[in-house]
Design a protein around this nucleic acid. Structure first.
Lengths: 110, 110
DNA sequence: ATTATTAATCGTAATATTGCAATATAATAA
DNA sequence: TTATTATATTGCAATATTACGATTAATAAT
C-alpha cells in the first residue's frame, strides 16, 4: 500500500525513522555536507554543486527544513540556507541513542 | 521519476543514504531494537511483537539482511536472527562521521 | 516600467515502497 | 507418508518518492 502504519509504533521509533528517512537520499546528504563545509551561508549555488534541477533541489531543501534541520533566510532575491545547530544536536542525540544500542549487550548469539 | 540519480553522488554519500534509508521505517527500527533487547536470538516472535503480517516482517528482515546489519541462522524449522556486530560497528562509524560534521565548524551564520 | 535573477510551487510521469493474501518451501512431528 | 509449523516468495493494490518542465512570485538592476 505504500502507506506506513505509524500508529502501531512508538513516538520514538517514528521519530528515529523520520530523521533517518530524510538522510535516506544522497542529494540531501550532499546538501547537508555542503552546508557544513561552507561556513558562510550557501544560497543558490547548491544547484551548481549538485547536478540536479533547481526544483528538485528546492524540494529536498523543503524536506530538510520541515524537519527543522536547516533554516533559510531570505536575502534579497536569494535565500540563505544553513544548519539549525540546536535541532541538529537534538537529532544527533536521538540517532546516537539508537545507533549505540550495541554498547549495552555485546554478546551476540549466532 | 521515483528513480534516485546515484551516479551523480559520491560512493560515500550513497552509502550513508543507503544505511539511513533502511532505518527510515519504524518497523525496521522496531525489529532492530527487539533484536538488541533479546540477547538470545529471536526467531518468529517478531511477528507477535510487531503488529504487521508475517510476509511484511519477512520483507523488512530481508532488507536489513541484504545490507548486512543482521544475519539469520536456520535452526530447524525456524530462523534465528541477530545483529551482525562487526557490520553494525562499521555502519556506526560511517553514520557518526556524517552526523558529527557539526563538531568541526560550530559557527552558523543566519 | 521593464527586464533580469532567484527560488518556490504546480503538475505530472516514472519508479519505489509498503503491506498483505495466497502460495510455496523446508524442516520436523505424528 | 502425512500433517504441522515456520519462514520465504509471488503478485498485486495503494500510496509515496524522485525528478523536472513550466510557471509564478518577489526582489534587484537598468
Amino acid at each position: 500500500m505504500g502507506l506506513t502504519k505509524t500508529e502501531i509504533f512508538t513516538e520514538s521509533q517514528n521519530r528515529i525513522a523520520l530523521f533517518a528517512k530524510v538522510f535516506g537520499h544522497p542529494a540531501r546528504v550532499a546538501i547537508l555536507q555542503h552546508l557544513f563545509k561552507i561556513n558562510t551561508c550557501v544560497c543558490g549555488d547548491l544547484v551548481n554543486v549538485i547536478k540536479l534541477a533547481q526544483p528538485t533541489i528546492s524540494q529536498h531543501l523543503k524536506e530538510l527544513k520541515s524537519l527543522g534541520l536547516i533554516k533559510g533566510n531570505v536575502e534579497g532575491t536569494s535565500v540563505c540556507y544553513c544548519i539549525h545547530q540546536e535541532n541538529w544536536t537534538h537529532m544527533k542525540e536521538t540517532m546516537f541513542q539508537f545507533l549505540n544500542q550495541d554498547e549495552i549487550k555485546k554478546e551476540g548469539c549466532c
